[in-house]
Design a protein around this nucleic acid. Structure first.
Lengths: 205, 205, 205, 205
DNA sequence: CATGAATGAGCATTCATTCAT
DNA sequence: CATGAATGAATGCTCATTCAT
């Protein structure tokens, strides 16, 4: 057994359970990004791996389940970033800005990875990514803290968190359409808008 | 017989043609709302009517085409409302508020129509509805006018219009989740946020 | 009524029964030639006329029935030619030659009419045209006459008639592939082959 | 268990794969013969097997592809026979006769296999079978050789090969209509006709 | 008779999922 | 556990045919 391991250590691309699961997740992320969640099929995902079709079902029961795993993964990667931003932030403004920068950076990176052919003809669809949920949770939490500390007015925290998500998504999309995408400018805009409204949004120049 | 003619002036052919087309559109609207655009199938739509499968293709060539018809329809109903709001508005604030009210009223009505079971298991997807595009166009136009007239600061009109859409969508969704949905409150929140930011958002009470 | 006739004599393209039937037949001939019998649909045929779909069924019960009508028509046009050739012929050779010339002329004309795009990728299919059946009947009759009069050896008339058809079809097809198609040469070849075999086939050169 | 391995040396997977492919081919041959290539549907073919509809697509991508496989198969079986006939032939006449015998034997066998109900209502269609193409190629080659060696007059080789095909098909069909089919007689007729024309065709008796 | 919309059977094809190996 | 062939439900779409007008 140990000899076999020596003879064939990397021969089969590490068909360990962990590796297989990871391979599926990686392929799924790419496929979802390219085709969209609905259009993507389990077959598309396994075609993106070197595994056999049946193997998929040893790890996930359905496309939904991979998506959830992916979402957990995304949130797991994104939430710490957000939380750290909150901890390091000197002010609520500072925090908001950091959060937007983090999110915009995130989608820019995701976009660069994918080939991103994306069918332009079909109606534009947006999906609740796990990152978004993370933003929602974090922003809401921070806001409630800020309100409790008297650092922010007592607004409707749910509505505000939702508004942040909406702004992040739409302004983020618009940013991606420009080249090059200017993360800082977009984050400045979003932060300014939320904090001071139109008056606070940076002048265009 | 002549009375019958008065009661039913439209030839039966014509009548059913219009009615069928309408039935398809209604079913399609419901199906798209329930399953999302991608997941919806032509067969889902016709199942939502009493028509035979082939009949669908006497009216539309594909799912895309129904969607476009729906979009045209939605925009046709919504834009005039928005435009009138702009014309009647005494100020930019007034206009914005009217627009949000109009949109929120719109989605509340749409939501009451549908059975709205909405498949909760699948990831939540949002779609660029035609109403949204209308909002975008109108808001952007109004904003550019306001900037030109010196009534608004010279912000990035594209970003701002996008932000309005994002806010409308997300705050709208959140509002629908509450019962009863309070259109005025949501519109107040959105308008206040955009005009004065957090400071302008109405205090919660 | 007579006045109406004066007012609108050709207004509606002579929607007489005869004209409709003829329109269908004409369209069918074209469609069969372009798409082949199997690939052709009733809808293709009616699309080739100005009639409504239902009208087709006032004249024919199915695609098969149009084809038969077409066949009868073809035979009706072709048989007299053949028969006259037989009556005018000074010898059996003369007759055979005339018959081949008539058939080859026929298919050349038919081919010039059609746009003849004809899908080359799919397996080549030949169909028993009514002309072919006519040839068969006529040739067989003539041959039996010739045998009875002692002008031809007592061969198997069925086989010989079949052979004539086979030769006519295949040499005819080959002739059409050349440009320009040389009817006389093809007829010389076919006649010579049948009468004297290889020795009788015209030398090339 | 070890004995079973001897009895069934092929893994069951492999065995059923080959068997399924074969089953599809067999069914396809029958279906094409019964309905004609165009009229035949993929579903007709799978209905002729015990397989599920989807299984077809594990083996062939389309009806065309089965047909090609069938054609390759037919040609692969038939060409060697023809070639051997050519090599063994003492004369051109001898060769021709052998070729006809081979072809007629072929179609007799094929016909015995099929249930051969053949839908009589639809117009009779003939298809360029792969065997026919093989005949064409072989006959043409042989003829050109014979001409080159001075064993045959310098006729139009293309036309002659076509004529042979036509004769083989039509006389072959006629032969099948008789019972019992007399291969030798049909081959005699065809050979005689081609070599010496009417004079050379065997007298009927 | 002409019309053309409605009908539903039928077709090619894809897909998620199972299961024998 | 991995494999990948088999399965049959489901989908988009076309078509022959009917029938109310």
């Amino acid at each position: 057994m140990s000899e076999a391991a020596v003879v064939e250590p990397i021969g089969k691309r590490e068909r360990t359970k962990v590796a297989n699961r990871q391979a599926i997740l990686v392929a799924a992320r790419r496929v979802f990004a390219k085709l969209g969640y609905e259009a993507a099929t389990v077959r598309d995902i396994i075609r993106g791996t070197e595994l056999a079709s049946g193997t998929f079902y040893n790890y996930f029961r359905s496309k939904e389940e991979v998506f959830e795993a992916l979402a957990d993964d995304g949130a797991r990667r994104f939430r710490p970033i957000l939380r750290q931003a909150r901890e390091n932030a000197k002010s609520f403004e500072d925090y908001l800005h950091s959060a937007f920068v983090a999110y915009f950076r995130f989608i820019v990176e995701d976009n660069q990875q994918e080939g991103l052919p994306i069918d332009q003809r079909r109606p534009h669809v947006r999906m609740d990514t796990p990152e978004m949920s993370a933003v929602y949770q974090e922003v809401r939490q921070s806001l409630e803290d800020a309100i409790a500390h008297g650092d922010a007015p007592r607004v409707d925290a749910d509505y505000l968190a939702c508004a942040c998500i909406g702004i992040a998504q739409e302004v983020g999309s618009a940013m991606l359409r420009r080249s090059p995408p200017d993360i800082a400018a977009a984050a400045d805009f979003a932060t300014g808008l939320i904090l001071k409204g139109l008056q606070g949004a940076p002048r265009q120049g």
